[in-house]
Design a protein around this nucleic acid. Structure first.
Length: 253
DNA sequence: CTGGGGACGGGGCCC
DNA sequence: CGGGCCCCGTCCCCA
C-alpha cells in the first residue's frame, strides 16, 4: 500500500495551523526548533517529555527554565524512528494501549456498542462549551494557564492543558510535536502505514479510531446528524453544517 | 455541492 | 495524581 498519501500535505500548503505553536512564544518549539528538539533516549516508540510542564497556578516558575527540555540533549535522530521515548515513563503501553484493537475485543470497533460502558451520565457533546467557558466558581481554587487565558479548577486539568502548549511528545521521524503520547502514536501510524482499526462492513482499515467511527456512519441507514428541516441525515456534523449553510434549512442555518 | 477520508486537538473518565 | 484511553469534534483535502 502506498504510504505517500499518509504523509500529508501539511508540509506543503496544508495545515500546520497549529495555533498552539504560535502561542508558545516562550515554549518548547520556539526554543527548540524541530531540528533541535531533544532527543530521545530509549527504545520506545515515541518521544515524550512530559515533564516539560509549565503552569501558572499563581505564578510558578519562569519560562526561561525549560524544565526538562534541554537542548543539550541533542538533535533528533530522524533516522531511527524507533529510537524515541516518552519521558513520562519508560514503559509505554505494552498491551494496554487501545491503539491496535485487541483481538479479544471482538476484533473491531462498534460505535453502537462501545465496549466501554462508562460515561453513561455524561453528555460529552457539551464538553466543548464547558471548556470554552472555563469558568471556575469563586469557591474553588483557580489554576491559570500562563500561555493562554484558560482557567481550570484542578491542577491536573491544567497540567493536561499545558501539554498542549509544551508539546512534549515529538515524532522521531518528522519532528512534529504533540501534547500526548497517544497522539504521537497515532501520528506515527501516518508514517508506518499501520491501520489497526478495520471496518467490519467493508474491511477498510483506519489508523485512527475516530476516523473509523466516522466511516461507520457511512454504513448506517440513519446517520447521526439530522437536518431538523428536511430530516436528512449526515454522517458528520460538518456535512450537516454544509447542508444547512447551503440553504436547505434557512431556519437553522 | 456532497460525501468521505486523514490527521489531529482536547477534556473527561478510569486505572 | 499521573498516565492512558475514549469520545467528540474540527479542519483540510479530495473525488
Amino acid at each position: 500500500m502506498p504510504r505517500s498519501f499518509l504523509v500529508k500535505k501539511y508540509f506543503t500548503s496544508k495545515r500546520p495551523n497549529y495555533s498552539e505553536l504560535e502561542c508558545q512564544n516562550d515554549t518548547l518549539l520556539d526554543r527548540y526548533p524541530l531540528a533541535e528538539l531533544p532527543a530521545v533516549t530509549s527504545d520506545f516508540p515515541v518521544t515524550c517529555l512530559t515533564t516539560g510542564l509549565v503552569w501558572d497556578v499563581s505564578l510558578l516558575h519562569d519560562p526561561t527554565s525549560p524544565s526538562t527540555l534541554s537542548p543539550s540533549q541533542g538533535p533528533l535522530d530522524l533516522s531511527s524512528p524507533s529510537s524515541v521515548s516518552c519521558s513520562s515513563s519508560g514503559e509505554e503501553d505494552e498491551g494496554r494501549t487501545s491503539d491496535p484493537p485487541s483481538p479479544d475485543s471482538s476484533d473491531t470497533y462498534h460505535p453502537q456498542q462501545t465496549n466501554r460502558p462508562r460515561r453513561s451520565n455524561k453528555n460529552r457533546a457539551g464538553q466543548r462549551e464547558d471548556k470554552s467557558e472555563a469558568t471556575a466558581p469563586a469557591t474553588r481554587p483557580a489554576f491559570f494557564c500562563k500561555h493562554c487565558p484558560k482557567e481550570y479548577n484542578s491542577l491536573g486539568a491544567l497540567k493536561m492543558h499545558i501539554r498542549s502548549h509544551t508539546l512534549p511528545c515529538v515524532c522521531p521521524t518528522c519532528g512534529k510535536a504533540f501534547s500526548r503520547p497517544w497522539l504521537l502514536r497515532g501520528h506515527i501510524r501516518t508514517h508506518t502505514g499501520e491501520r489497526p482499526f478495520s471496518c467490519p462492513h467493508c474491511n477498510r482499515a483506519f489508523a485512527d479510531r475516530s476516523n473509523l467511527r466516522a466511516h461507520l456512519q457511512t454504513h448506517a441507514d440513519v446517520k447521526k446528524y439530522q437536518c431538523s428541516t428536511c430530516s436528512r441525515t449526515f454522517s458528520r456534523m460538518s456535512l450537516l453544517q454544509k447542508h444547512t449553510a447551503a440553504g436547505c434549512c434557512p431556519s437553522t442555518a
